[in-house]
């Protein structure tokens, strides 16, 4: 079945977007990315370290995976806009995962700064994918501002708490005219499947794979979970009932 994910006019056969943070080595990351089947993967922008050996960019290039720079570590719209422009220059892509956090303890996204940065980046020609709380009103406003997708969190980054408010995710999905990508909070495969069953168009995760005991095996599990959840969503689940409904004839 032809069921591509389309973001900003670009097609992806895989609905699993990977992050690269937290992997113990580039070799482990490489194996996990291969097992995940991902076609789009995030990187962060940091000061160049002359002593660094190997580059995450080489891994992505070898695998033919499209790079999605993020603005992780930014606390203000100003910082995020500069980081996005540097990423565009370094990586030759105008795609950006916009991430503006409010504090280091929760790493929750700051909605005011995020919206401000999104408006400026859209005006500057970027394809903007903003990381946001599970707020249907903000998701709608960002879509109206010209963002190519919205990326609500399931739970705080790295927490592995799953999807804390499935109802809000459903509300975002119902109203959205752009792809909804569940970003952050995924702990295990069932969380990723749930995101897709709720109607999300894709899942972005990193920690659940990179810090698993066997990252490549968890990546494979996430790949299957995203595919299973997507199929279940398209298939249409049965309604929940209070009492049993016999699945065999009741008369002899």
């Amino acid at each position: 079945m032809d069921d591509d994910l389309i973001i900003g006019g670009e097609k992806f056969a895989s609905r699993l977007i990977m992050g690269t943070g937290g992997a113990p080595s580039l070799e482990v990351l490489d194996a996990a990315l291969a097992a995940s089947g991902t076609e789009l993967t995030t990187v962060a922008m940091r000061r160049l370290d002359p002593s660094a050996r190997g580059s995450v960019l080489d891994v992505l290039r070898r695998r033919g995976i499209r790079v999605l720079p993020n603005t992780a570590g930014c606390f203000t719209a100003q910082e995020a806009v500069l980081t996005a422009r540097l990423a565009r220059e370094a990586l030759e892509t105008d795609w950006v995962k916009l991430e503006v956090i409010s504090d280091e303890r929760t790493l929750l996204p700051d909605p005011i700064e995020t919206f401000d940065a999104a408006e400026r980046l859209v005006a500057d020609g970027f394809t903007v994918l903003p990381y946001i709380g599970d707020d249907p009103a903000l998701a709608r406003r960002l879509e109206q501002a010209g963002c190519a997708a919205v990326m609500p969190l399931g739970a705080p980054i790295g927490s592995g708490l799953g999807i804390r408010n499935p109802h809000n995710i459903e509300l975002i999905v119902e109203a959205a005219g752009v792809p909804v990508i569940l970003d952050a909070g995924i702990g295990t495969a069932s969380d990723a499947a749930l995101a897709m069953e709720l109607g999300c168009d894709a899942v972005l995760l990193a920690t659940a794979v990179t810090r698993a005991q066997r990252p490549d095996l968890m990546a494979q599990a996430m790949r299957s979970a995203v595919a299973a959840g997507r199929a279940a969503r398209l298939a249409g689940r049965i309604p929940r009932r209070r009492y049993a409904e016999a699945s065999s004839p009741m008369t002899p």
Binding site: L29, A52, L57, V67, L68, A90
Partner: peptide, 10 residues
């Protein structure tokens, strides 16, 4: 002067 490159993240 800030000189940046891509690293693992996100």
């Amino acid at each position: 002067v800030e000189v940046l490159t891509a690293v693992q993240g996100g």
